[in-house]
């Protein structure tokens, strides 16, 4: 727990401000932060790790049935921001979050809001596939079991099957549901984790660089999957691969040193970036 806190806390300092010039301040975000049909609405979100100001006044909407990608150089705070959306930052004792984050007009930052149902509604897929050291079946059944979503074994079986099918994994594993989740390949593991997330029927799915640990073929499969899932879910994805952002998302947000520099439709961001920093990043000047 501490190690990961340190790792995350250390990130923002890896790209130093003076390297890029202090004058390129990005106090206000370029582009349209609002969405036509917003599911989540963030306003002036600030995050500190101890004294480290990791997210600065970020405001952003995430719309229904859209895939929004967050890009930016490493340490720009995109993952941190993503973790605010289902309060995963609570698990890091040094993290402090301020500002307003709403899910369907309900303030989730509020201390009275329970993280357990929140996280059931806002699921998350992590950078490294993290299947539990249990069987494939148990990996999927875990969520429904703890929440008591099913009443019988048959229902649970069915739910496991649908989840795996949605994640496109059913055909590959249906004969070995008792095999350990860790015995799968990296790409399969990540789809298993997606299936696990789907099993509790979330409304929003957060993906934190879901393909960074995978090979190109596995990446392609996952990207396809993300596109399919868009029909039912709202998806926010953090990625360091601009191509991936371009391929899977409808909107893109560019983060830089804790600031949300620019947000807009993916086409706009990649074809006609408004901000100098965005352009530099897109064109590969740094990153």
């Amino acid at each position: 727990m501490n190690a990961s806190a340190e790792a995350i806390a250390a990130k923002p300092s890896t790209v130093t401000a003076d390297k890029l010039g202090q004058d390129q301040s990005t106090a206000t975000t370029v582009g349209e932060i609002t969405s036509a049909n917003p599911r989540m609405r963030c306003r002036e979100v600030n995050v500190w790790y101890d004294d480290n100001h990791a997210i600065k006044d970020v405001s952003l909407d995430i719309g229904q049935n859209e895939v929004i990608s967050m890009i930016g150089p490493s340490g720009c705070g995109k993952s941190t921001f993503l973790r605010c959306l289902n309060r995963m930052n609570d698990t890091i004792s040094t993290a402090r979050v301020e500002g307003s984050i709403q899910l369907d007009d309900q303030e989730i930052q509020d201390k009275s809001i329970d993280v357990v149902p929140l996280r059931a509604r806002v699921g998350m897929v992590f950078q490294k596939p993290n299947p539990f050291p249990k069987s494939i079946y148990e990996n999927i059944a875990y969520g429904p079991r703890i929440h008591g979503l099913t009443n019988s074994r048959a229902e649970l079986d069915e739910l496991v099957e649908t989840s795996l099918q949605r994640a496109g994994l059913w055909k590959e594993v249906k004969d070995r549901l008792d095999a350990s989740g860790t015995s799968l390949s990296g790409g399969q593991q990540q789809r298993l984790c997606i299936a696990r997330t789907l099993s509790v029927s979330p409304e929003v799915i957060l993906m934190d660089e879901p393909c960074s640990a995978l090979d190109p073929i596995a990446t392609a499969i996952i990207e396809e999957l993300i596109d399919e899932l868009r029909a039912q879910y709202t998806i926010a994805i953090v990625t360091h691969s601009m191509q991936q952002a371009a391929r899977v998302s409808q909107r893109t947000a560019y983060f830089h040193l804790g600031d949300l520099v620019e947000v807009g439709t993916t086409d706009d961001i990649f074809n006609q970036p408004q901000h100098k920093l965005t352009e530099d990043y897109i064109t590969g000047r740094f990153g």
């Binding site: 727990m1 190690a3 990961s4 289902n86 995963m88 698990t91 993280v115 357990v116 149902p117 929140l118 996280r119 059931a120 509604r121 699921g123 998350m124 897929v125 992590f126 490294k128 993290n130 299947p131 539990f132 050291p133 875990y142 969520g143 703890i146 929440h147 984790c193 696990r196 997330t197 509790v200």
Partner: peptide, 15 residues
């Protein structure tokens, strides 16, 4: 036990 295990579980809404 890696933090990722815990994260995976918490992200599903486990207590």
């Amino acid at each position: 036990v890696p933090q990722a295990m815990r994260d995976g579980s918490y992200a599903l809404g486990a207590t």
